[in-house]
Amino acid sequence: MYDITLFTPQDLAKCSLVLRQFGRNTPSMEASSQKIVKYIYQHFCDSQTGENTCVLVRLFKTHPYGELEDSLQQSARRLMNGNSPAADMKCWTLLAAAGPEPHWNSRHTAVENTAIPLVSAELVAEIPAISEMIRQFGLEIPTVIGTEPEMFLQLEPAALNIFYESQPKGSPFIAEQDSLIIPYGVKSVLGFGGLLESGSLFAVVMFLKVKIPQNTAGMFRHLALSVKTSLSLTDKKNVFNSLEQTQNIVTNNNTYEMDFLESQVANLIQLLDFSEQEMVRQAAHYQLIIDKLQIKIALRKNKEQAVQASQEQFTGIFNLPQDAIVRVDENQGMQRFNQGEEQI
């Protein structure tokens, strides 16, 4: 169990390890996705009450229209007034969901539009929820919808980031205000994801009952790599569940195992790069703090030395025995006198 308000690096490492395994021996990306959202929904809880911290968890992926199953193609065509999109046009597709309401736990019933066509960069820019997530991920809309594949090749290895909304109520970037945000008391929304090798964008979105700080949200960037590891095994292959895929997972177990291990190696190398970059960043941060402290210490020492020198000079003058020196207050009361005054 993880309390997101008290999320620690140890929690991050434990959760990351679990999420990386969900691509193993699964027949499709949809099956892996369902395991991921279910685990997150069930294991992020309030440490005091044990109640689920998540109102809802969803996992999305961009997917070519021509490779969608019939029900998803129908969803896309509804939004295009019955017109059929081009086969290679990307659609923002729901793969899995988990929450307290029964109909939220199936991609077929979780939302009204399970596949949103990303027709052009101009039209995507007019969909606040998607365009803002792309922006916060540090990506460009043309890269995500596939109109700039050369840019994707440069970005994919490191394109993992978070989407964070600390004030979801009334936010133009968060839809379903009346059906989800307000009635279920959602206090923050956190998404994490990035690019897959196929050119698809994936994102896990958590609707939370609690507020979390920006630094906690930033930790989930590392979980994006673990989710990518799980999804990569079936990327470009089996995305949606089918009976045939479920049967083949048993007979082709050795092939899946080899693919899984190869995927693990590639992503663990990327995780090592992430860790090293984080270590360098933190080392630079701590060095900056140390440098500032050393400057303050040096200034303090210089000030103390100046004060000491001034006091020594004053004491030397004050204690001259042949002269009388007296310090009095405003009421002519004697405050201090030297040896000369004492002798007089």
Rank of each mutant, 00 (worst) to 15 (best):
I4T: 11
I4Y: 09
I4W: 09
T5Y: 08
T8K: 03
T8N: 06
P9L: 02
L12N: 13
L19N: 07
L19G: 08
R20F: 09
T26K: 11
A31Y: 09
Q34N: 14
Q34D: 13
Y41F: 13
F44N: 11
G50M: 05
E51D: 12
N52D: 10
N52C: 05
V55G: 01
L56E: 03
V57M: 08
F60E: 09
K61G: 08
K61H: 15
E67S: 13
E69A: 11
E69G: 11
L72P: 12
A76M: 07
S84V: 13
P85L: 04
M89F: 03
W92L: 07
A98H: 00
E101D: 12
V119G: 04
E122R: 00
E126K: 14
A129Q: 09
S131Y: 02
L139D: 10
E140A: 08
P142L: 04
T143W: 06
I145E: 06
E148T: 09
L153Y: 15
Q154C: 14
L155D: 10
A158V: 13
N161R: 12
N161M: 10
E165Q: 02
E165P: 03
P168Q: 02
K169V: 11
G170Y: 00
S171N: 01
Q177Y: 00
Y184L: 01
K187F: 07
V189E: 04
G191Q: 01
G193H: 13
L196A: 12
S200R: 09
F207C: 01
L208W: 04
Q214A: 08
M219S: 13
R221Y: 02
H222Q: 13
L223D: 07
L223C: 12
V227Y: 02
L233R: 13
D235Y: 05
K237P: 01
Q247K: 14
Q247A: 15
V250E: 15
N253C: 11
F260L: 07
L261N: 05
E262G: 01
Q264A: 09
A266Y: 02
N267F: 06
L268N: 07
Q270G: 07
Q270H: 05
L271P: 01
L271Y: 01
F274E: 04
E276K: 00
E278D: 15
H285W: 05
Y286D: 15
L288Q: 14
I289M: 08
I290Y: 07
I290G: 05
D291L: 00
D291C: 00
K292D: 13
L293D: 04
K296F: 06
K301Q: 11
N302Q: 14
K303E: 14
K303Q: 12
V307S: 13
Q311G: 04
Q313H: 09
I317P: 05
F318R: 01
A324C: 08
V326C: 06
V326S: 04
R327S: 10
G333C: 13
G333L: 11
M334L: 14
F337G: 03
F337T: 08
E341M: 12
Q343R: 15
